[in-house]
């Protein structure tokens, strides 16, 4: 397997004594789409921060192709869009490239191309306060992809959106992933979203978190609304829900 990132026996205890992770093993194959599912507070976000290189684990190994990861090789989409309100759409998307001091011509080209891809080409001059929640999240996704990262980490990115907007963005994300084949680690607490998007659903147990179940989803991509209403989809969701229930996550969210 061509591994982009592997966490081996990772343990993390925060300075305040919170024991977030223990014995977490996780390997991401190049170009794969993995969903990470678990109850609130089970350490999903901590896992993402360690994967991003933003946090060093208390114990265990983090293996990557290059360590530390070169800046720009990892994209991150937060729970909130985290856009800078004083920058317009164009400059928000361009921010990572500007921080990396890339040449002006390269920035112009990449931002323009990406805005076209995510359907924001018509409104580069709008500011975040002039956008809907779904639009803002689109900008956040574009910003995460603008450096052409090998690994994209997403922390419940569409959880705050209404269901229709979330379906639309799930489909957009799927399309972008199929076109660019970056590796995705997608944290969610929606069983349906994880089954709809991912090739593999990893279920985490309650804190201190570790992987307690792995459910492959062999359905071919692109998946569409028909898959969402199919018997196969329902069956996979049941399997994932059962794994969640077994993990001790009594308040497993649907």
């Amino acid at each position: 397997m061509n591994t982009v990132l592997a966490l081996e026996g990772v343990r993390h205890v925060y300075p305040n004594g919170l024991h977030a992770l223990d014995g977490l093993d996780l390997a991401l194959a190049e170009g794969s789409f993995t969903a990470l599912l678990g109850p609130s507070g089970c350490g999903k976000t901590t896992t993402l921060h360690i994967a991003a290189g933003l946090l060093a684990p208390t114990a265990g190994r983090v293996r990557r192709r290059e360590d530390p990861p070169p800046p720009g090789s990892v994209g991150f989409v937060f729970q909130e869009p985290v856009l800078l309100p004083w920058l317009d759409v164009w400059h928000n998307v361009a921010l990572p490239l500007r921080l990396l001091r890339r040449p002006r011509a390269e920035i112009d080209g990449r931002v323009a191309a990406l805005l076209r891809t995510v359907g924001l080409a018509a409104l580069p001059r709008l500011h975040p306060d002039e956008l809907s929640g779904g639009m803002r999240m689109r900008v956040a996704v574009a910003r995460a992809l603008v450096t052409d990262p090998r690994l994209v980490l997403m922390d419940e990115p569409f959880a705050a959106l209404d269901e229709l907007a979330r379906f639309r963005l799930d489909d957009e994300l799927q399309r972008l992933w199929l076109a660019r084949r970056f590796t995705v680690l997608f944290v969610t607490h929606s069983v349906y979203e994880s089954v709809y998007l991912a090739q593999r659903v990893l279920v985490m147990g309650p804190r201190p978190g570790r992987i307690v179940a792995e459910i492959p989803v062999h359905e071919p991509h692109p998946r569409d609304a028909a898959f969402r209403t199919s018997a196969r989809f329902a069956e996979l969701c049941r399997t994932v829900l059962a794994a969640l229930a077994r993990s001790g996550a009594t308040e497993a969210a649907a």
């Binding site: 991003a52 290189g53 933003l54 800046p71 937060f78 985290v82 800078l84 921010l95 921080l99 990396l100």
Partner: peptide, 26 residues
């Protein structure tokens, strides 16, 4: 400046100066 914003800047290895000019000052 919020923690998420600071994480974003840390992700791209922003220097102290970049963080000051592009995030903290605005």
């Amino acid at each position: 400046a919020g923690t998420a914003e600071r994480r974003l800047f840390a992700l791209y290895h922003a220097s102290r100066w970049q963080e000051l000019v592009h995030l903290r000052l605005p």
